[in-house]
Amino acid sequence: MSEMQMRVSDEDRERTAQQLQQAFTEGRLTHPELEERLENALKAKTYGDLLGLISDLPAEQAPATEVVELASKSGGVKRTGDWAVPRRLRCSSKYGSVELDLSKAVVPHSVVDIELDLTYGSAKIILPEGGAVNVDAFNSDWGHISTSDVPNRQRPGALYVVITGRSKYGALSVRYPRRRWFTH
């Protein structure tokens, strides 16, 4: 079975609907087009169905040349909570670690490129539920790369993070937020 024939979840349908609403807000779709595509998104059964609804829309809203740089020589780089994630992010740290929590961040792009340049530190990237990651172009000389249960294939309407760069002695960990179980 091809990926396009795989069945979608309610969350996949909702992400696609959000992307369609954003396209309407930007003036890329008329109101009748939005209504028709939203109806079809809610009835979609496969990834192919959803991709057909957004394939003529841009995947990114910011120029690919815009790069935000976060750097530290002896401390760490950390972004958590409600922060704006740029389309391209370059993080470097010689002795510290990098922690980027995207789970509660504002991410207006469907694809985010993160370049890591670490010498002695490690990196932890936390994705929102449903997000996917590609770490094929990240190299760790003496550390390990862990993506836990995070898929590496891009999915319609979901955040897709591409991580490149290197770490000489540190590790890279990509995961979803930890679930908290409360007992009453």
Rank of each mutant, 00 (worst) to 15 (best):
L100W: 13
W142V: 04
V162R: 13
N152L: 01
A44Q: 05
V98Q: 09
D117C: 01
Q19M: 11
A41L: 04
D12A: 08
D82K: 14
L172R: 04
E39C: 11
Y47N: 07
P58F: 08
M1N: 03
G96F: 07
A59F: 04
D149F: 00
Q19P: 06
K45A: 00
R179G: 10
D82N: 15
N40F: 02
R180H: 14
V85C: 10
L127Y: 07
G81K: 04
D82Y: 14
S148T: 12
E3K: 10
V135E: 00
H184N: 10
T183G: 09
V135Q: 05
S55M: 00
G27M: 02
D82R: 15
E26T: 11
G121E: 12
E99W: 05
R37S: 03
F24T: 08
A44C: 03
A84N: 11
V85T: 12
T164C: 00
V174Q: 02
S140T: 15
G170T: 13
Q19I: 08
M4G: 00
L89C: 06
D10L: 08
S74P: 13
P58R: 03
Y169P: 12
Y95L: 03
L172G: 07
L100A: 06
C91D: 02
S110T: 15
E129A: 09
M4F: 07
H31K: 12
R90C: 01
P32Q: 04
V111M: 07
E99G: 02
R15G: 11
L29C: 02
T16N: 00
L89W: 11
A137G: 12
